[in-house]
Each structure stands twice: as structure tokens, then as C-alpha cells.
Deep mutational scan, measured.
Amino acid sequence: NKFNKELQWATWEIFNLPNLNEEQVKAFIDSLRDDPSQSANLLAEAKKLNDAQA
């Protein structure tokens, strides 16, 4: 299933962003679980936040 692979990839990527704190990671993962179809958008937002906090 396409969404499942995207969800797994986005989850792994978010867990490995070095500049997000635990609460931010949890919030993004919760959002992914709530709406897996938004995984690409949520990953992009997480990466933006990660870069901003570098």
C-alpha cells in the first residue's frame, strides 16, 4: 500500500531529524497517524522546522 510505505518513510525521517525536540517529534508522528495521506506535507513541515531550529 502506497500510503503505508510513505507513512513508514515519513515516520523514520521525522524520528531522525536532529533539531526537533521530543514533543515536536511526537506531535508530527501523531499527525501522521491521524492522516497518513498527509505524510509528504507533514514531512516537509517537519524538515522546515528542523532547519529553522538548526
Rank of each mutant, 00 (worst) to 15 (best):
I29T: 04
E22D: 14
L43K: 02
A27V: 11
K26H: 09
Q24N: 02
E13V: 15
D35Q: 10
R33N: 15
Q8A: 14
K26P: 00
F28E: 00
A10W: 08
K26S: 09
L17F: 05
T11G: 03
N41Y: 14
F15E: 14
E22K: 12
K2T: 13
E6P: 04
K47Y: 15
E13G: 03
L42A: 04
L43N: 01
A52R: 10
K26E: 07
D30S: 14
E45D: 06
A40R: 14
L20Q: 00
F15R: 14
K47W: 09
N19P: 00
A54K: 08
I29F: 05
P36K: 02
W12H: 05
E22R: 11
A10R: 02
L7S: 04
A10S: 03
S31R: 13
F15N: 10
L42K: 05
S31I: 12
A27F: 15
Q53L: 13
A52L: 13
F3N: 12
F28T: 01
R33W: 15
A40P: 07
P36H: 03
N4T: 05
A10G: 03
N50I: 01
K48E: 06
D30N: 14
Q53I: 08
N21I: 08
S31F: 12
L49I: 09
A27Q: 12
E6T: 05
Q24W: 02
N1E: 12
A10M: 06
F28S: 00
A46M: 02
W12L: 06
D51Y: 11
P18I: 07
D51A: 14
K47H: 08
N1W: 00
I14F: 03
A52V: 09
D35T: 08
F15Y: 15
P18Y: 10
N1I: 05
E45S: 11
F15T: 14
I14T: 02
P18H: 11
F28M: 04
A10K: 03
S31G: 08
W9P: 02
R33S: 10
L32A: 04
E6R: 04
A44H: 09
K26Y: 10
D34K: 10
F3R: 08
N16P: 00
L20T: 00
E22L: 14
S39V: 15
P18W: 08
L42Y: 09
E23S: 14
V25Y: 03
F28D: 00
T11F: 14
A44P: 01
Q38M: 10
E13R: 06
N16I: 06
Q24M: 03
N50P: 00
K5F: 04
A54E: 10
Q8V: 09
N41W: 14
N4S: 07
A44E: 10
K48W: 07
Q53W: 06
F3K: 07
P36Q: 03
L17V: 00
D34R: 15
L7G: 03
L32E: 00
E6Y: 13
A27H: 12
E22Y: 13
Q38P: 01
Q53V: 06
A27P: 01
K2S: 15
N4I: 10
A54Y: 08
A10F: 15
S31T: 09
N50Y: 01
W9F: 08
A44R: 13
Q8F: 12
N4F: 14
F28W: 03
L7T: 05
L42V: 14
E13D: 04
Q53F: 06
N16H: 13
A46Q: 01
Q53R: 05
E22S: 13
D35R: 08
D34Y: 11
T11D: 03
K48N: 09
A10E: 02
E45A: 14
R33P: 01
A46N: 00
I14Q: 02
N1S: 04
A46S: 02
F3P: 14
L32F: 03
E13W: 15
W12M: 08
N4Q: 14
L42F: 08
A54T: 12
D35I: 04
N16W: 05
P18M: 09
F15L: 14
N19R: 02
P18A: 07
N19V: 01
W9L: 12
L32M: 13
D35E: 06
V25H: 04
K48D: 06
L20N: 00
A27E: 07
A54D: 08
L17R: 00
K2Q: 15
K2H: 15
K5N: 12
Q8T: 06
W12K: 06
D34L: 15
K2G: 15
K2A: 15
E6W: 15
S39R: 04
D30I: 14
I29L: 10
N1V: 04
E45K: 13
A52N: 07
N50D: 04
S37A: 07
E45G: 05
L43S: 02
K2D: 15
L42R: 06
A46I: 02
K48G: 05
A40K: 14
F15M: 15
Q53K: 05
K5E: 15
L7Q: 06
F28R: 00
S37V: 05
L49P: 00
Q24Y: 02
A40Q: 11
T11A: 08
V25M: 06
S39F: 09
Q38A: 15
N41V: 11
N41K: 13
R33F: 15
E23F: 13
I14P: 01
L42G: 01
K2E: 15
W9Y: 09
I14W: 02
E22I: 14
L49N: 02
Q8P: 02
N4G: 13
Q8D: 09
I29E: 02
I14E: 02
P36W: 05
A52K: 11
S31Y: 12
E6N: 06
